[in-house]
Design a protein around this nucleic acid. Structure first.
Length: 437
RNA sequence: GCGGUCAUAGCUCAGUUGGUUAGAGCACAAGAUUGUGAAUCUUGGGGUCGCGGGUUCGAGUCCCGUUGGCCGCCCCA
């Protein structure tokens, strides 16, 4: 038993774990880069007020926060959005638009552990700033889909549920509700999938019994699952603003259709996301079997940069976490086996042979080959077994006989054939082997 | 913050109504085997049985507490 354990909710990454994590990050990075996003990073530790400003005081319960030695209130970052809003806001005037940025970073939340959720986790965050139209959503939803698809998952495995807080505001506004009531009702909509009608409890406690007609309207609107149904549902509302909004929907869905991604998108008005700061389209990726928590989520937050960074700037972004995503890959058998095997394993006789081998070993390593050899003198039989077990493709043999003849043997560990090369010709032979193989 | 459940070697687990010095397989290491790979055999390292207390002549086993894991609730930026 180890003397010290990791703190609850924190994870050690053994080499095989880290290899899997890095593999996920590598593909996310390549994908975001292919979409023209550039990478940034921010401090892990931030002023506590940064998160209070965005989310209010109640957020503190879920934060790793403390007083630093200079008596500053600080917190480990629980999310990227406030930080990136600060960065972008500070240079909003000089950045070329649209601003397409991404990051892969670790976050910390003081929460109870659960399947797919720990107290530390990694997220890919991708955001577009400075583009108010649905073109930004097209780009981000496409990126979100591709970040999942790139691992071999298909529209049979996951989908992106798309909704729109703007239309919810139009719809509920047309029923005569004011903004506070609308926000409270959206909170209920967010919970309705999990809690059923009990989700309305909070609203009723604040504003009294829910009118039966209103409730029926809300339930019918949140059951909308297609664009056609959405058009029908808004037909009665009749407002010009709502009609204009439907044009944004047509652009968005049409763009994704043209990219061949329409089958990944499910219109679903029951998604509103709990966060009050979302202002427009919101979208969440789920596994199709709906066994796991959300894979990824995002939406438009046009007011936040102004609030946190000083300059008004429309924005839309999303995040994918590593934990639920890794669970899904695992379930679908798509967790890759990452080879950390050397390319070459050297079999070495005695001290003189070792000196000869070292010259080649260092030369080959300088060329970028992964080269391994036994640290101690070991029987040849064991060395060959170690060479095979290591996963190396070839063994270079530096024995007494070879040294005496001025040669090095190269053994193909796959087909077990051996060839001899003059001692000076090893690097060329290795290069030829890997070049042609 | 709340509830359920579990905790024996690196991993998977066994351990009888409470009874000698806590076991197996896998993995790791050494040897049989100082020039050629999947096998076999032998041997070894590795445990405060999560931690603390209690009952008892005696606790891995029973009781209480605690910590941690897993699952769920709250929350989920």
């Amino acid at each position: 038993m180890a003397m010290f354990q990791t703190l609850p909710g924190f994870r050690d990454f053994y080499p095989e774990d880290l290899a899997r994590r890095n593999h996920i990050f590598r593909i996310w990075r390549q994908t975001a880069s292919a979409f023209g996003f550039v990478e940034y990073d921010t401090p892990v530790l931030e002023p506590l007020d940064l998160y209070r400003a965005k989310s209010g005081d109640e957020i503190e319960a879920q934060l790793f926060s403390f007083l630093d030695k200079g008596k500053r209130e600080v917190a480990l970052r629980p999310e990227m959005t406030p930080s990136v809003c600060r960065l972008v806001g500070e240079r909003a005037g000089s950045l070329k638009r649209p601003i397409k940025w991404f990051s892969i970073a670790e976050f910390y939340r003081y929460e109870r552990m659960q399947k797919g959720r720990g107290r530390c986790f990694f997220q890919l965050n991708a955001d577009i700033f400075g583009e108010a139209g649905p073109e930004a959503e097209i780009e981000l939803i496409a990126l979100q889909i591709q970040c999942i698809r790139a691992f071999g998952l298909t529209d049979k495995d996951f989908c992106v549920r798309l909704s729109d807080r703007t239309l919810w505001f139009h719809f509920l506004g047309s029923l005569g509700l004011d903004e506070t009531r609308i926000r409270a009702l959206l909170g209920a909509v967010d919970k309705h999938e999990r809690n059923g009608d009990a989700a309305f409890k909070g609203y009723e406690e604040a504003f009294g019994p829910l009118d039966a007609g209103l409730k029926a309207g809300v339930l019918s609107f949140l059951s909308v699952r297609s664009f056609e149904a959405l058009e029908r549902a808004l037909g009665g509302a009749g407002a010009e603003a709502a009609k204009a909004r439907l044009d944004d929907w047509r652009k968005l869905l049409g763009g994704l259709e043209a990219m061949g991604l329409r089958d990944y998108v499910q219109v679903d008005l029951s998604v509103v996301r709990g966060l009050a700061y979302y202002t427009g389209f919101v979208f969440e990726a789920f596994d199709r079997k709906d066994e796991l928590r959300a894979l990824a989520g995002g939406g438009r937050y046009d007011d936040l940069v102004g609030k946190l960074g000083g300059s008004e700037l429309p924005a839309v972004g999303f995040a994918i976490g590593d934990m639920t995503f890794a669970l899904l890959l695992e379930e679908r058998g798509l967790t890759p086996v990452i080879s950390q095997a050397p390319d070459i394993y050297c079999v070495i006789g005695g001290a003189a042979e070792r000196r000869a081998a070292f010259a080649d070993i260092h030369g080959l390593r300088s060329m970028g080959y992964r080269v391994e050899y036994p640290m101690r003198e070991v029987a040849f039989g064991k060395q060959f077994k170690a060479a095979a077990d290591s996963g190396a493709r070839i063994a270079l043999i530096y024995g007494g006989d070879e040294l005496a003849k001025g040669i090095v043997k190269m053994r193909d560990l796959g087909d077990r054939t051996e060839r001899e090369f003059p001692a000076g010709g090893v690097t060329a032979a290795v290069r030829e082997f890997f070049g042609s193989g």
